[in-house]
Each structure stands twice: as structure tokens, then as C-alpha cells.
């Protein structure tokens, strides 16, 4: 999920990733997923973490089908009710949790998010998955890894590693949510 969605103003700095860059990064992750899953590709489930992880998961599924001809299942898991920082951040509207008909038991689940930062969102998503079923394995794909982990979590697929300072904000925009694709860093 976007850790900086409250950012009000348009950034004046040039984007770190342009719309074309975002497309290329998504393609690359799709190729990596196909390669790494191998014969298991059919049992793969892409589970997006709302808000922007959800369209990202759908895009990845679309690219995987284009490149491999295999249609993979997609779902979303809202982690709001699993967060451990509600007291600090206050409540927010909940988003969809939708899993494929076949569920996730015994399957390879790849969590998809836009930015990997503290790792707390992923921790919450893992807790949510545990209540939803028992996957064979869980992996993580993110568009941007900006560092500053607070938990022992790492991504299996990273679109771009971006060194940042803690005070900076990383803003991912996706056409489905924001009208256009870009990734920017603002101080």
C-alpha cells in the first residue's frame, strides 16, 4: 500500500519512474514470476494489497497471460483490520478482500504492493492470509523498495530499489487509481 497517500501537492521534481518506466518494470516482474514459478505457474495467486497493490496485481496477471498464455488467479486482501498502528494512524475506510473461488490453500501466493517501506503492511497481510487459508508458500512483489525496514521482511520481486531518507515520501501513481502512472520522491 502507498505509505504516502496523504501527500497533498503535485510534486515539482521530475518523476523517478515515468509511465513508460512503470510499464517496463511491470513487464520485467511478470517475466520473473513466470520464470521462477516454472510449472507451478498455474497454481499461482496474485494477491494485491489495496489500494494500489490491487491494480498492480491485475496488471501483472494480464502481462503473465500475454507472455505465457497462462491465466493466473488474482485477489485482494485489505489489511486495515490487521494493522498494528491503528492507534497511531486512526481509522480508515476498508477496502475489498476478494480471493479466487478456489481459495489459497496449498497454492503459491504472491503478495503485491506498490511500495515496501517498514514491512508492517506485509506483516499485516501475512496475518490476514493466515486467517484466510494455508498457502503452500507466500512471496512478495513490490514496485518500489525504498528501504528502512522495521521487520525481517524482504521482497522476492522488486521493480526498483530506491534509496531514500526516512523523511522523504515515495508516491506511486497508477492509472487505475490516479489517472496516470508515475513514481516520484519528494522531500
Amino acid at each position: 500500500m502507498t505509505e504516502s497517500s496523504a501527500l497533498p501537492a503535485e510534486p515539482t521534481t521530475a518523476p523517478l519512474l515515468s509511465a513508460d518506466d512503470v510499464g517496463r518494470v511491470v513487464d520485467r516482474i511478470a517475466h520473473q514470476l513466470i520464470e521462477k514459478a516454472g510449472p507451478d505457474l498455474g497454481s499461482l495467486v496474485l494477491v494485491g494489497i489495496p489500494t494500489r497493490g490491487a491494480p498492480l496485481a491485475r496488471r501483472l496477471a494480464g502481462r503473465i497471460e500475454t507472455f505465457s498464455g497462462v491465466r493466473v488467479d488474482v485477489g485482494t486482501v485489505d489489511i486495515t483490520l490487521y494493522r498494528d498502528d491503528l492507534r497511531l494512524r486512526g481509522v480508515r475506510a476498508l477496502e475489498d478482500t476478494r480471493l479466487p473461488e478456489a481459495g489459497i490453500d496449498g497454492r503459491l501466493v504472491v503478495l503485491v504492493d506498490d511500495v515496501l517501506f517498514s514491512g508492517r503492511s506485509v506483516r499485516a497481510a501475512l496475518d490476514a492470509l493466515r486467517d484466510l487459508g494455508r498457502p503452500r508458500a507466500v512471496q512478495l512483489a513490490v514496485l518500489v523498495d525504498r528501504g528502512h525496514r522495521e521487520l525481517p521482511i524482504r521482497a522476492d520481486y522488486v521493480g526498483k530499489n530506491v534509496p531514500t531518507s526516512r523523511s522523504q515520501s515515495v508516491k506511486v501513481r497508477l492509472a487505475e487509481v490516479d489517472g496516470a502512472d508515475s513514481v516520484t520522491v519528494t522531500s
Partner: peptide
């Protein structure tokens, strides 16, 4: 109401 619906579906 929306939150209740999300909780129910979750």
C-alpha cells in the same frame, strides 16, 4: 454501512 459490508465480505 460500507465498513460493515467490507467486514462481512472479509
Amino acid at each position: 454501512l460500507d465498513t460493515a459490508a467490507q467486514i462481512e465480505s472479509a
